[in-house]
Design a protein around this nucleic acid. Sequence first.
DNA 1: CCGGCGAGCGGAGGAAACCTCCGCTCACCA
DNA 2: TGGTGAGCGGAGGTTTCCTCCGCTCGCCGG
Lengths: 198, 198
Amino acid sequence: MAMSTAQTPGRPMRADARRNYDRLLGEARTAFAEHGTDASLEDIARRAGVGIGTLYRHFPNRHALMSAVFQEALASLLARSHELAKADPCAGLVDWLGAIITHAGEYRGLAQALMSTSRDETSALSDCNVPLREAGARLLARAQASGTVRADVSIGDLMQLTNAIALAAEQAPEDPALAGRLLTLTLRGLKGPRAAAG
Amino acid sequence: MAMSTAQTPGRPMRADARRNYDRLLGEARTAFAEHGTDASLEDIARRAGVGIGTLYRHFPNRHALMSAVFQEALASLLARSHELAKADPCAGLVDWLGAIITHAGEYRGLAQALMSTSRDETSALSDCNVPLREAGARLLARAQASGTVRADVSIGDLMQLTNAIALAAEQAPEDPALAGRLLTLTLRGLKGPRAAAG
DNA sequence: CCGGCGAGCGGAGGAAACCTCCGCTCACCA
DNA sequence: TGGTGAGCGGAGGTTTCCTCCGCTCGCCGG
């Protein structure tokens, strides 16, 4: 379960450091799922049996911690995108957007944070959003090439709208079907039978 | 400029109370516009030349203050909806959704707060959202009756999506045209020329 | 014009969370 | 097995939240 995905270059982490890192990550996952991504960092450190200073040593800010927690789900979303690349182009794209929304719903506040990534590119969460965007771009291009999706839609807009839907859905937990309806609405559009072509 | 919209029943407010109320409202408007709706309440009180206790006396929580600030814009949005009720049904609806988004953009954080209203109906902001929703429902019904908008769209979903778009737009201030594009996307849908009918 | 009464004022203060800083410890290497 | 610096941890300064309660002064009746 514990990922221990850290330390790309240089020598391996010291044993105690790695243990603390993993504990923090685990507690953060729990806390974010339970109380949303604005859970108390002091609380996370406390539950991990670690000083607050240690938390900040490993994760200089909240986004860094969120990014680390998000990494593992990222892998599964990317894998999903590769599977869906073999499916029907349009349905595949929509399925994938749905998967993103479902995932974002697991951590209250994540959708919002991901959206703000478009503004603050230095955020640690960009590391999560960029690969996601690229995977989305491939699915979108394929769907557009097949003619089943409008050619004038950009992946940036589509991702932003998807995150927006995720956010709307998390505000209405009493209506779990909302996300699906909004996604369908986005797919088919508002226009009715007698609308002028556009 | 100062609205002094308070005190429905009973005797009029004491002169000093009304003065403080109006000052607080004015400073809140400024602060919310400048720093977003999570501006410091202590700061607002300080700028209004009033103790923090006085702020909490008039506005028991942040949502109450937001609601009061939002009231005046509410009036203009409702007026707009009546004008648009004479315009082309579909275009009128879309124009109005655009107006909501524009307005929400004036106070960072407002869109989010309005969305959360669907969850917490005791919030003071419900007083703002309910009339808005009703005005929207009228425009939507008219558009649906004319056949230019799908019949299976509910006003609840549409408002939630509109707020979500407003929120997405405020995350990307470097791209002021984003809101318009997302709204258009919602209107026309994702589907391209070769998609199956749905 | 004036006195008293209570609505309204205001800020002290406790709680929570943020983040920084720095002296100590102990994991690791030679 | 000893030295050393990477890593630990928590004290503490800051900010914001919100409550509570003694004082003040706006208003009304005389």
